[in-house]
């Protein structure tokens, strides 16, 4: 576990500054589930019960942090959650556009306006407040966009994870307070969203893999939001690439792609379609596969598609996520890397 410098709140024991454990979605850890979670106290209608095989608690560590009303940042494999006194105040994931992309893509906010707010109020961690006070956004618009982005990034962050989770006490996000939500609400919504996707189309491939059109004719009744997504399917882009291009929350894109997949219009790119040089190092002498490997590029030796060239936007986000994980000060480092990468586009 990499030890990074945390910024503790005054009075907190240093020894407690950082916590890490194997916070993977491990079914063995479901004993952390509060007994009342399964109590049908909210009515049975449309309640997304976790399906068999899916642990009813997404992150035991997150539940504990909520109970102890912790403040800081939880870093998981696919994103980060910022907590203030046990409530979720912000979330980010490389799989979905950040607030800046969401607000600037359609012109709700000019890029200049965004960066001015970040430079004016970022150090005080009041960027959200500044955007409203300076008249750039209404409180309602900021809350709608930020809250949507929070649940969206949390959905990806709390997705199945194989890596350990890490919590750093005292770290706050520069966006500042907007509209905190409970950990319980975030976890419940994440499970409900998984269930929603599964009901639309049970194959999860379109969530993450490069997408292609099947060639099936598209009739005029295709809803415009799905058509907008379909127009971005080019054989290379993934769902998160498309979300970034459209400035649309990632989960919304997943929903539309599952609907397009269910309609037989979009599918994942088959490994055999992908072309590219075969890594020579993968031919192992004496292995059973080596005979197959000589059959051609679509042989069994390459079960996975060759690495897809990342689009600039996904590279930016990947870099930003990497910076956030590697740096002692994720906020400032993230901002710098994002700015540099955006300017370089």
């Amino acid at each position: 576990m990499t030890t990074v410098e945390a910024r503790p709140l005054p009075g907190r024991d240093r020894a407690d500054d950082e916590r890490a454990d194997g916070d993977t979605a491990d079914p063995d850890r479901t004993d952390h589930v509060p007994a009342d979670r399964t109590t049908p106290d909210r009515g049975p209608a449309n309640r997304a019960e976790p399906r068999p095989g899916i642990p009813p608690t997404l992150s035991p560590m997150l539940s504990r942090l909520a109970q102890e009303r912790a403040t800081g940042v939880l870093t998981r494999e696919r994103g980060v959650l910022y907590l203030v006194e046990g409530q979720v105040v912000h979330a980010e994931s490389p799989a979905t556009p950040g607030l800046d992309v969401l607000l600037t893509t359609r012109g709700a906010l000019g890029s200049d306006g965004w960066w001015e707010a970040v430079s004016e109020a970022g150090a005080d961690r009041r960027v959200g407040r500044f955007l409203v006070d300076s008249g750039r956004l209404t409180a309602g618009a900021l809350e709608l966009c930020h809250l949507g982005a929070l649940y969206d990034a949390a959905f990806f962050t709390l997705g199945p994870s194989s890596g350990p989770a890490r919590f750093r006490y005292g770290v706050a996000h520069w966006i500042g307070p907007v509209r905190p939500v409970s950990v319980d609400a975030v976890e419940r919504e994440t499970l409900r969203r998984r269930d929603l996707l599964h009901r639309i189309w049970p194959e999860p491939g379109t969530d993450t893999e490069p997408l292609v059109r099947t060639g099936r004719a598209v009739d005029a009744t295709l809803p415009p939001r799905q058509r907008t997504v379909l127009d971005q399917v080019d054989g290379e882009r993934t769902a998160s690439d498309i979300s970034l291009v459209l400035g649309r929350p990632g989960f919304h894109t997943l929903v539309d792609l599952r609907r397009l997949a269910a309609a037989g219009i979009v599918t994942t790119r088959s490994p055999t379609i992908a072309s590219g040089p075969i890594p020579t190092g993968s031919v192992e002498s004496g292995s059973i596969a080596s005979g197959l490997a000589e059959c051609g590029p679509d042989g069994a030796r390459t079960p996975e598609a060759p690495a897809t060239p990342l689009s600039p936007v996904s590279t930016v986000v990947a870099q930003a996520a990497e910076a956030a994980q590697a740096s002692a000060d994720p906020d400032v480092a993230l901002l710098r890397r994002l700015r540099d990468a955006l300017e370089a586009l």
Partner: peptide, 17 residues
């Protein structure tokens, strides 16, 4: 309406949820 998420609520709801 894409996700079905309630971003904010106040008062009662028809089925108590």
């Amino acid at each position: 309406w894409t996700s079905g998420l309630a971003l904010g609520t106040v008062g009662d709801s028809p089925n108590g949820d």
